[in-house]
Design a protein around this nucleic acid. Structure first.
Lengths: 345, 345
DNA sequence: ATGAAAGCGCTAACAG
DNA sequence: CTGTTAGCGCTTTCAT
């Protein structure tokens, strides 16, 4: 039987209110009695019961996060920064992971309904208008990360711009025949990255060839953002084109890894036969010399938490929507160094 | 103001007890009234308050997990399987991530004390006797994963045996001069893998050369299990040896990636100049053709959850300790195929 | 089968 | 400043 506030009160010879005041360093307590109570607390190894506190305070000091799968580098890094930021503010993190997309609504309902948390972080998940409504009704602060909804505070990477920049770089380096490997278009970033890609081509008066665009198969919940999908997509690209592009913008680094594997198998050299730019800047991008768009993931997590905590404290920016810029990292796979060398000579 | 059980009771014209019985499909309720109450519940969009339920039931349907960092592939995969298993059993997961090792005890105390959870999963963390004691006293079921304590139920990978097998393979393939790159010895698996390595050498009457053992620097909380540490360790190995080993057992795949990068920079070819076997079988091991020890991570997560849930239900195996076997996956980096080819010819 | 009442452990308003 | 009391929202006897 764990020790309760009553045990402490009795042993300290005070009322439970006083004990409560001692714990919550209330100003309304005599320093002497407070010290005494605290001493008894130590002796008894008393620890407040978080759930009881939450119930009485109507405040849980817990944030719920809804994450699809989270096997992926991006989520992990994000979760890590979120966890760090939360823990700095003495908030706990409860994880609702969505393994099957058909359970998404069930999970959202649960989050909405259980009221275990003071706020909700939704990662990379599209929220239907119906659920946006529900969240707004419920009054519980929500921020969506890596996706957006007009009615809900959202933080995203500037995907369109990032893709534009990546493609732009390929063009600057001298490429004119550029293809793209994208994630499945059920993914919001995949859509935007394709848009950015097309925009860059267009602005440079290059034509977009449909047969040079490969969309990865969407395995459950992952939108094709994995190595195997990239590999398969590249295989397809190779088999259905007699004339290949000289460069490829790949929507994510893990996919780019798959693309590299397929290219290698086909005897294609990177960047000589085919140049590559990825997106994400995972740790291994450096390892394989992959040029890519670096995303400020940690900053995104930190910002999401900051903003959510603000909202919980009642600060309400209307229609909060932030885009974080991705930054080009030039390594070997885009052939840039080679190209620059030519310029210099 | 959210709707409570009282609102439902009033509107349904019953007592709150009956409503409660309806929700918890108690047998002690007339099917007709139950149906009626359920209908009202639908109408009112009533949802039970999880915290209040937990407080009254003295049961939270939540598991606390204590994870160091979790940036690493191993944890992510593990957490994923844990999350899946938990969610199948309608348990929630609350995450206590340890970013700074000096906060470890604080975190454990919090877990112990807040009583938010019915059980605790501790990952890859050594538990001091003091805390083992505390956990046992607290009566709260705990299982340690990827580490062990004699007093606490533990599930680990058979690290010593895995390392032994990996080294054994290198030997079978013809290597006699074998070195090792290990994680920092503050890590339990790092210690065991070194032991297994030494044992294999010894049983084959090969000598262990101290200058061919590199221990990675332990950056905070990671025990050197990352790409950069592997890279640096390999650099050191190369710089301080004039005569190199012909093969290396590397304690983890991510480190092996770093080793490969350093080897490549030094103009060493794998496996021709130096053969490699890793440990973990991360997704990228396949990509780079790294031979490695595959760990049944998902199975480990599932088993941890199963066991913890059993304990929560009161089943108590005394001194539960399980080792899951790692399995050798032969790819290119160990030079095995080549060696086999030679044998065949 | 069902309503009333007594907690679960704590906070906060209310008197003093 | 401090003790008492009334909730927080629900489960669970205990009568009926």
């Amino acid at each position: 039987m764990p020790v309760t506030i009553y045990d402490v009160a009795k042993k300290a010879g005070v009322g439970i209110g006083t004990v409560s005041r001692a714990i919550n360093n209330s100003a309304q307590i005599n320093p002497a009695t407070k010290a005494h109570v605290l001493k008894i607390i130590k002796e008894l190894h008393y620890q407040p019961h978080a759930l009881a506190q939450s119930l009485a305070r109507k405040k849980t000091f817990t944030i719920a996060s809804v994450v699809p799968f989270f096997t992926n580098y991006f989520f992990v890094e994000l979760l890590k920064s979120v966890q760090a930021a939360l823990s700095n503010n003495n908030y706990d993190l409860i994880l609702y992971s969505i393994n099957r997309m058909d359970r998404r609504d069930t999970t959202l309902d649960r989050v909405l309904t259980e009221r275990r948390a003071d706020g909700v972080l939704i990662f990379s998940l599209g929220v239907s208008d119906e659920y946006a409504e529900k969240f707004i009704d419920s009054q519980i602060p929500v921020v969506i990360v890596d996706h957006m909804h007009p009615q809900i505070d959202s933080i995203v990477i500037a995907n369109r711009e990032g893709a534009y920049l990546a493609t732009q770089h390929l063009i600057q380096v001298g490429h004119e025949q550029i293809g793209m490997i994208d994630g499945h278009l059920s993914s919001y970033p995949a859509i935007l990255r394709l848009e950015g890609f097309k925009q860059a081509l267009q602005e440079n008066h290059l034509t977009f060839y449909d047969q040079w665009l490969e969309i990865c198969d969407a395995r459950v919940g992952e939108h094709g953002f994995n190595e195997a999908a990239g590999y398969k997509a590249m295989k397809r690209l190779l088999s259905r084109n007699s004339r290949l592009p000289t460069a490829l913008f790949v929507a994510s680094d893990v996919q780019a890894l798959g693309v590299m594997r397929a290219a290698k198998e086909a005897g294609l050299r990177i960047p000589d036969d085919i140049a590559l730019v990825g997106f994400d800047d995972i740790e291994l991008a450096k390892f394989v010399g992959l040029s890519t768009m670096h995303q400020p993931i940690a900053q995104m997590g930190q910002m999401a938490v900051d903003h959510l905590l603000q909202r919980i404290q009642g600060v309400h920016h209307n229609g909060f929507y932030t885009e974080l810029k991705a930054k080009l990292i030039v390594r070997e796979s885009c052939g840039a160094k080679q190209a620059f060398r030519v310029q210099v000579e």
